[in-house]
Amino acid sequence: MDLSAINPAVLFASLIVAATPILLAGLGELVVEKAGVLNLGVEGMMIVGAICGFAVAVGTGSPFLGFVAGAVGGALLSLIFAVLTQYLLANQVATGLALTLFGLGFSALIGQGYVGIKPPPVSALTFGPLSDIPLLGTILLRHDAMVYLALLAVPGLWWAINRTRMGLILRAVGENHDAAHALGYKVVHIRLAAIVFGGAMAGLGGAYLSLIRVPLWTEGMTAGAGWIALALVVFASWKPGRLLLGAWLFGGITVLQLNLQAAGARVPVEYLSMSPYVITIVVLVVMSARGGRAAGAPAALGRSFHATH
């Protein structure tokens, strides 16, 4: 065993990259759930974002347009969910699951001509001499633009949710839609916007996977990342800051165990792989043991709203 082969700075840098797709998707789902909607279709929206982004980036040669297309693809898919659950009052859990299944199949259909193709490369941003600062430069200053966008989105969303009027309305809708409705807010419209935002973020996360992190297209390439993003939101108890920590933990465990293996360490892979989920359960238990509002979930989460008066 030779642990000196592992460079902590490089390890942390790859951890940040590995966490970016689930961070993006998790942030989107956090906003959706803050509005009181449970969308289990994250996996489906991610993979549709992955193929839309991939197809457009290959077609136009521009990764930027690819990311835009990924976001649009995810958002369009989430619109189906929005119409079904907000206007037709379909069950959110069942609709979300259906969205995932539909997304997986639909992406496979679009992606048939894209297997084995290489997308246009995305270069990392350069900060000149700053990128050469020992440790900090390696960890933080040699990434692509999407990593910074995802990282900036964390304080951005925190601010938007907790410090703006828009965020207050969003939370009001998520906590008590009847009261929000009585105050004159358009509950359905606000939820629709939140769902579309969540879809776009999931699509971005998917496009990051197919354009930068892997980068290729194969069917089913998200391989459960969407479900991890969902677990993340619960783990983070609906707080953006904790979501970042969770994303690093969830993404980091995989990177860490693979690095340990490559260095020849004897690692109990099974225990490491399940540890994020065990921690999620522990977090849930601790939160509910504190009593009061169970686990910090928005009070109207998963409940349909229909204006009767």
């Binding site: 790859s14 590995a18 390439m221 693979l258 792989s273």
Partner: peptide, 23 residues
């Protein structure tokens, strides 16, 4: 040798390759 414990998970396979290359 790195065990991925999966036949098919592109992100994990890429991470495994990355871990090897970094070392």
């Amino acid at each position: 040798v790195v065990w991925a414990y999966t036949w098919f998970d592109p992100a994990k396979e890429a991470d495994a390759a990355k871990a090897l290359i970094e070392q």
